[in-house]
Design a protein around this nucleic acid. Sequence first.
DNA 1: GGTCTTCGTTACAAACCGTCACAATATCGC
DNA 2: GCGATATTGTGACGGTTTGTAACGAAGACC
Lengths: 251, 251
Amino acid sequence: MFSQATMSQPRDAVRHFPAIPAQAPSLRSLFGGQPVETFESGSAVFWEGDDARHVFEVVEGVLRVFRIMSDGRRVITGFIYPGDLLGVSLKDHYLYTAEAVTRTKIRRYERGRFQDEINRSPELRPQLFARLCDEMAAAQDQMILLARKSAEERVASFLLVIARRLGAVQAQAVIEIPMTRLDMADYLGLTIETVSRTMTRLTTCGVIAPSSRHAIVIRKLGKLVMLAGEADDDDNRATGMGSVQQAVWPN
Amino acid sequence: MFSQATMSQPRDAVRHFPAIPAQAPSLRSLFGGQPVETFESGSAVFWEGDDARHVFEVVEGVLRVFRIMSDGRRVITGFIYPGDLLGVSLKDHYLYTAEAVTRTKIRRYERGRFQDEINRSPELRPQLFARLCDEMAAAQDQMILLARKSAEERVASFLLVIARRLGAVQAQAVIEIPMTRLDMADYLGLTIETVSRTMTRLTTCGVIAPSSRHAIVIRKLGKLVMLAGEADDDDNRATGMGSVQQAVWPN
DNA sequence: GGTCTTCGTTACAAACCGTCACAATATCGC
DNA sequence: GCGATATTGTGACGGTTTGTAACGAAGACC
């Protein structure tokens, strides 16, 4: 819960307050003093059902957050990128598993202390709320994707979100896709074959071009935005970032 | 955002602190002083894109919260029941439309004042966090439903969630379904015909029995839980309620 | 360098759900 | 009460996605 800022715009709260000196409290500085831990690709930071003892900040690498249905079906609810928080939950057990997609470096903070800090600090609270807000917005976007978008729209949307996440929304930029096709499928509610076929079709149409196994180039950004559906909305967000209020929950 | 406690368990935060006297601050008492407004069935409380000026508490009735894709496809992201909050967002514009399914009574609170109250009150903050947490959990359940569940599993899950929402999870209870088949379809990522056919099939199997157009009786609860998939999880939650920490974000 | 394993691609048949059509029923207004 | 309208139910058909399988490519390991 409140784990991933599930691939919204890069919205590091700090950048909204450029005038504030560096020593102002921020979520980033909160974790700054903690030691960095490394997780190898494929290893879990925690499992669904574990006691929720810590909150994490991702320093480097990418994680997948997922749940497994009783019959084995896996649903990835989000991917976590550097700067995102993980495990910010009010539940006493994690509701999902978090697993490293690539080699990942994180800092952890004991949950009780984290809550104390948030409670004490009028600067940190709005930052945390903004994170949760972005995460909720991302969850809604995902619901729209899963409820009504076609396979092609889903893949196109995914590539766009990834590109924005990397700050590389202009055409011809190389987009790293660290996750496997199976990860993408379980995130997009498709099968691995459908993902593969759709990527191939996008390549055939000249919209994207494979760069390596885990990277592509966006050749026709406009067309990709069109194929993603939700054209207006995505188009706006392609340029700038979201519209998080800055003076909200002030102080 | 943070609008709906999208049909989780009935989790009025007050009930977790039975020892605390009635005058303790609570989200409910916060809205208590506000006048009640009535919205007729089909009318909108606010529209996607409106300036987000108010936060609402639903007193009576049911609302649907939805977004419309550029080509007209509608996705309902949640239904709002009495006791739920609506419009608790950090964005300066509402990201979705909220519309009355039935005649609905609400209280509204000016956004800035609401934020001030939350910020000032160490009692209210954990309550609001708990709501957001439940909403996020509901969003994840919905992602699982949309990503991997079959039509039958979706309808069965929906009926169960509705039943829990009404506190009527035992068999033979009459479950009111105020929304139309189209609402259900747009919430479950299906078409109206599929919803209709699936309801008919559940009736034929003796799992449910129609009571009226907008109400059913659950005849075989166990079988309905099985058909909903996610058997373990749902089974647990069928009995009790969630596991929101009580002493979290204390004070 | 060679072998093994994992991952990705492609083809074909099958299933599920959506689309279209129309009938039946409920709801609302007069 | 009665008709008009909206909502719901049911069928036949078709399309998109899935499932199964085989093949090819990339990386791991010795």
